[in-house]
Design a protein around this nucleic acid. Sequence first.
DNA 1: CGCAACATTGAGACCAGTCAAGCAAAGTGG
DNA 2: CCACTTTGCTTGACTGGTCTCAATGTTGCG
Lengths: 232, 232
Amino acid sequence: MSNADRIVCDSCPVADRAVCSVLSNDDRGELARIGHHRRYARGETIVAAGDANTVCATLTRGAAKMSTIDRDGTERIVALVHPAGMLGQLFAPDATLHVTALTDSEACLFPRAQFEALSDVRPALARRLLTEVSRELDDSRNLIDMISKRQARGRVAALILAFSRAASPAPCHDEAAFDLPLTRGEMAQLLGITIETVSRTLTALQRDGLIRRTGSHGIVILDRSALTALAG
Amino acid sequence: MSNADRIVCDSCPVADRAVCSVLSNDDRGELARIGHHRRYARGETIVAAGDANTVCATLTRGAAKMSTIDRDGTERIVALVHPAGMLGQLFAPDATLHVTALTDSEACLFPRAQFEALSDVRPALARRLLTEVSRELDDSRNLIDMISKRQARGRVAALILAFSRAASPAPCHDEAAFDLPLTRGEMAQLLGITIETVSRTLTALQRDGLIRRTGSHGIVILDRSALTALAG
DNA sequence: CGCAACATTGAGACCAGTCAAGCAAAGTGG
DNA sequence: CCACTTTGCTTGACTGGTCTCAATGTTGCG
């Protein structure tokens, strides 16, 4: 816990969107006292599967992945977390997922028991948590839907569009040029295909004029409607 | 709403496990007054996607599926619901999923607004709902994991084991002989493979002596450990 | 009985996985 | 500063599991 630090809500970039935004200033101050703020470098583990599930967190900057890892080391990404999202598995009996920073990131960590106790006496927080978990559930089911209905081109197209949306600060319109903060291996783990297929598919999308690649992670969308059609 | 009926908790088979079990008798009585009980025949729609999301429900008997259906009619099952489970998408802005009875079923339906209002003043209910949604999220992510790591034999094996567990009334041990309450088409939609592959795989599992089939839906498990190994 | 829905089986095509080689960029150490 | 290693990405050839298309078998219901 070398990077641990005090929580300062005033300068928080997601103060208006995170789950704690529904609390009064007093309650938020109380939460800030019992929790702490921490920075993570790309690739660093935030919550390890099998850990006593004693912490819950809000991502304030960066991006993170939640993944399963089985005995033989095969990893599978089951969710991405963007700023204001929750890290870890609140209200689950134990942590079965790894949470890892995809880029340099920051998060507010809270002792789980105290966070849950606060939700018992603040209905607004409980309701906000329910909508948050419901949204995650929706995301998860959309991922199932996408994986089973689309093949490689459609999956890669959907990923590109998703990051085009996430890259834009304004929710109204999407970015045309941005970086994918994932390695080929991570894209493969998320989309349920292999590294080679991701690489071949990106090459094919560029050959067909739907995108242009700048460096290994830069993407410029040239034909958004064609990508949308592929993604379904 | 021809089959609508009053709710009688005394004879409810899931009174000890459903989300309402955390309520006092008074609160449960209040809930019973504002809701109603209803029977559904196999194949009947319980909640339709696109409906104003005004109802939430607990399944008391039978089995149900939650599925996405897109423009061209392609259906994808994203979750199964067993007795004591919740139907519909609580706290989601709108219903994007169809909920359909897989067998003849019964459910308690509640107006969503009043149910949510009750959770605001009864922390125990709010907490119980959070654990319920968290469990659904876990199931959903396990499905993602299974689909992307196993191929056809493993997926079918996992399905058989899941229903072996669900068929047993006692949580301690599983049934060896039971019926799959799904058509081949529904299994295909759930597992993300085709009807033909489901059929071929079941034939192969029987040829290899892992299961025996009785009729088109009856299953007898002959080699549970081999199935477990396949399912991962 | 005869229709309709569901299930099984086969043949061929194809997408993606596997194995393997080569390339580029970034870091490491002499 | 340059060889060397490491890591990540790309590309090719081959293989194989699953899909598609099609025919046949089976079950259940009016």
